[in-house]
Every structure is written in structure tokens, then in C-alpha cells.
Amino acid sequence: MPRAYRSPTLVSLLLGLVLPLAGCSPDTSSTAEIPTVVDSHVIQAGNGADITRLSGRVQAAERATLSFEIAGKIERIAVDVGDRFEAGAPLATLDDERYRLVARQRQAEAREAEASLIEKRQDYRRQSSLAEKGYVSDTQLDTARAGLDTAESRHASAVAAQELAERDLAQTTLNAPFEGSVSARQAEPSERVAANQAILEIISDREGFEVATSVPETLVDALSTGTTHSIGFPALGGGTLPATLTQLGTQPRSSNDYPVILSLDEPPEGVRAGMTAEVELSLAGAAQDASLLPIPLTALVYDDEQHAHVLRIDEDGRLENVEVTVVDIGEERAKVRGELAPDERIVARGTEFVDPGQVVSLLDQGPERYN
């Protein structure tokens, strides 16, 4: 049987078709990593100056909570919230009947003790005179001396009790310690109140107004008394006014915030106690540090031990975990210190969806600036 004849030209053509197809077959030996798209932020250099914005509240520089030093039933309250008064004016009174009776009783006891003292003093003088003449014994003289001593003690005690009773009677009237107005009223007539129970809260505008706020422990060393800062009042329109830091607390409140008091150099017209204030603190010292870098608040990542981190994007688009120290936190940004440098790029949002070591690509969006 004759052998089939294959043309060399046909064989070459078939081989030319097969070899390219073999080169196009997929390589399943490795899988390419698909980058995750992230929103990024380019770190800007610190400028060496820093202003922290906080909320505060206006309060009168001179204020007091008034109360009776004694217990009793309120007979009258002469003022209400918003009423003005002069220094020394009677603001409230207690029913004083019981205290008047006690004062009269103590007066009678003091007079009785005084009469007894006079009698014992005369007796002692008589006994002394007789003892000098030898008509009485030393024992009788000592008895007279002891009786006089007892009478003197009882008289002194009775006089002190009388003074206390008269003082309590005077305390049934609550007088204004200075000229001002009533900011709060916490009791009503016919109500029985205990000693030192708050009755009225009063304020004075003679010493001006001040603003109370608080700062985190990381900023305490950057503040000092006597420095000038700025305060704005949303209820009074735009603009800020100078204020002097007069008090810096040494004991923190809750959440390690330290109280701060700023005195308004020139209180604006219309300012009232209780108004909201926007405080701009100019920080100094450690806070005015070029190593502090502003970043978006959403870029911070916290581990199980509440240590702060950011995710830096290297030149190959791979994420690196960098620990930072948070020095200041605002509404939208934070000031941090760490192994970061200006112009480096970090993940700005969505840090919970990526991990260190992961490759990412950048969202088509310009870097945000946090000054």
C-alpha cells in the first residue's frame, strides 16, 4: 500500500499555527495581586505655630451661691431670676420666731449668770478680808475661790451662748454681698431648708466676664497664665476679641481635661453669662513644634492597646504601619508626631478595609490640606 505523501510546505504551515497558540495559553503558576483603591492624604510640613479651637462658656468673673447658715422655713424671697439688687440689700428671710425666743432665753441666762458672778465675787472678797484677820480658815477661803471660778466660767459660757443666739437671729436675713443680679433661684417661700442649702445664685458685672473651657493633658505644658488668646461669640456675630488666660488648673476633671479660665479684656456689648464661646488658644513651647504633622482624623488607626497608627503608602504602593503620638485632636484633623515626613502619603479614609503589607492604588483625588 503506498505511503501517504505530506507536503513539507503544509507541515511547516501547521507548525507555525500551533506554536503561537501554545504561547497564548494562560500561566496558572501565579496570580497577580489586585490593588485596592484608597483615598490618600499627602502629609504637609508643620509650620511651627499652632492654634487649638475649643468650645467654652461665658460666666461672670464675680459670682456666688447664697445660702442660710442656719435651718428654717423661708418666709420671703425678695428677688427673682434677672432682678438686680444693691450691695447689702436683703434678698431672702427665714421665719425668725424660734431664733428670737432662743436669743431672749440666752439673754436671761446671761443675766442670771452675771448676778451669780457678782454674788460669788462679793463672797470671795468678804472671805478674803476675814482670812486676813484670822477669822476664817484657809479651807473656807479656798471654797469661796472655787465658787468664784465656777461663777466666772458659767458667766463666760452664758455670754457666748447669748452671742451665738443673736448671731443666729441675724442669719435669718440673707443680704447681698455685692451689687449684681440673680442668675438662679433654687428655693421658694414656705419651703423648709437646711443649713448651707443653696437658695440663690447671683452674679456681678463689676469685675467683667470670663470664659471657662478645658484642655487635654497633652496641651497643658503649652499654656501659661498671662498669655493672650482669642474668643468669639456665635450669638453676637462674627469676629474675635482678645482674652487673657488667668487660671490654669492643676487637677484634671473627667477624661484628663484640665480647666482653663480666660478673662475678657473688653467684654462685647450684649454678652451674658451662659453664652457659648469659641476659644482659640495660641499654643507655645512643645506644641509649637515643626515635628507636629497635621493629618485627617479619619487616618488614625488604633490597636487593641489604644496605640495610634497610620498606614503609609510606600513607592511601590504597599502599606506600612507607622505608630504615631497624638498631640492634639480637632473636629476634622489631628496633630501627630512619629516616623513620618512631609510629602509622604498615607491612607486618609477607609483604614478599616485595608491592612499593612497590602498593595493599594490611589483614588483619583488631589491631596487634602489640613493647616
Rank of each mutant, 00 (worst) to 15 (best):
residue 151 A to K: 07
residue 57 R to W: 10
residue 255 S to H: 14
residue 319 L to M: 06
residue 282 S to R: 15
residue 102 V to D: 13
residue 258 Y to M: 02
residue 71 A to V: 01
residue 286 A to D: 15
residue 285 G to S: 08
residue 315 E to M: 05
residue 5 Y to C: 07
residue 145 R to F: 09
residue 103 A to G: 01
residue 267 P to F: 08
residue 42 V to N: 09
residue 179 E to H: 07
residue 213 T to H: 08
residue 349 R to I: 06
residue 200 L to V: 00
residue 334 A to I: 00
residue 166 E to D: 11
residue 44 Q to C: 02
residue 229 H to W: 06
residue 16 G to T: 14
residue 57 R to S: 14
residue 47 N to V: 11
residue 84 R to Y: 07
residue 340 L to E: 01
residue 371 N to I: 11
residue 274 G to C: 05
residue 53 R to E: 13
residue 176 A to L: 03
residue 141 L to P: 02
residue 182 V to I: 12
residue 84 R to I: 01
residue 142 D to Y: 09
residue 361 S to N: 09
residue 287 A to E: 05
residue 170 A to I: 00
residue 180 G to P: 06
residue 184 A to D: 13
residue 320 E to C: 01
residue 45 A to W: 06
residue 297 L to M: 08
residue 233 F to E: 04
residue 366 G to V: 02
residue 114 E to L: 13
residue 145 R to S: 10
residue 292 L to S: 06
residue 222 A to D: 09
residue 86 E to K: 14
residue 281 L to V: 05
residue 355 D to K: 14
residue 20 P to Y: 05
residue 145 R to N: 08
residue 185 R to T: 00
residue 210 E to N: 12
residue 17 L to W: 11
residue 137 S to Y: 05
residue 212 A to R: 15
residue 121 R to E: 14
residue 274 G to F: 08
residue 130 L to I: 00
residue 110 A to D: 04
residue 127 Q to H: 10
residue 33 E to K: 14
residue 225 T to I: 14
residue 170 A to D: 12
residue 184 A to R: 15
residue 323 E to G: 07
residue 359 V to Y: 05
residue 218 T to W: 03
residue 205 D to Q: 13
